[in-house]
């Protein structure tokens, strides 16, 4: 009974520490933005092939992280992937003729969307669509292309046809 108080203080400290660790994990280790995540504007882009792109992947321009992918869906009217992304509001001056591509971080890293700035004087606004897109490079296709071009070197340029995936 004498140490009841010390025990209560110790327990309180422990629980606070545990919750702080949880908070640290959720906010610092993951890309989740607790509470303040609803800022920024949405852009969409259509790709023939998104490779291994996932929701949460970063969107960058000139290597700077400016937002992330919020949704990926498939449009069965034109058989393309529709990628939604949220761009932080401070990056509001992105030319509306910029193009988006899907790239890989390092050799084995995650895929991300890279935006190359265009020349237009008008900028993207909320719900705009990026018209110019470059699909993800799929390694197997790349190798296939390379093999074909090697084989077809004699009789002109080799046309890479879509192989089975």
């Amino acid at each position: 009974m004498r140490q009841t108080r010390a025990i209560e203080v110790g327990t309180g400290l422990f629980v606070v520490l545990g919750l702080a660790a949880l908070f640290f994990m959720v906010t610092e280790i993951t890309a989740e933005r607790v509470g303040v995540q609803r800022h920024g504007y949405l852009l969409s882009a259509r790709f023939d092939q998104i490779g291994g792109l996932k929701v949460g992947a970063p969107v960058s321009i000139a290597g700077v992280n400016i937002g992330r992918v919020t949704d990926i869906s498939f449009d069965d009217s034109d058989y393309r992937a529709v990628v939604q992304m949220r761009i932080d509001e401070q990056y509001s001056r992105i030319p509306d003729d910029s193009d988006a591509g899907i790239f890989t971080q390092g050799l084995l890293g995650n895929q991300y969307i890279g935006i190359a700035a265009g020349l237009s004087d008008t900028f993207f606004v909320d719900q705009d669509r990026i018209e110019l897109t470059h699909s993800a490079l799929v390694l197997e296709k790349l190798i296939g292309k390379f093999m074909l071009s090697m084989a077809g070197r004699g009789n002109g340029s080799g046309e890479a046809e879509e192989g089975a995936e």
Binding site: E28, I29, T30, E32, G109, N110, Y112
Partner: peptide, 14 residues
């Protein structure tokens, strides 16, 4: 270091 970590770890992992 941090950005790679953030893009790799999802809430589901936690």
């Amino acid at each position: 270091f941090w950005s790679q970590m953030r893009s790799a770890v999802e809430l589901a992992d936690i």
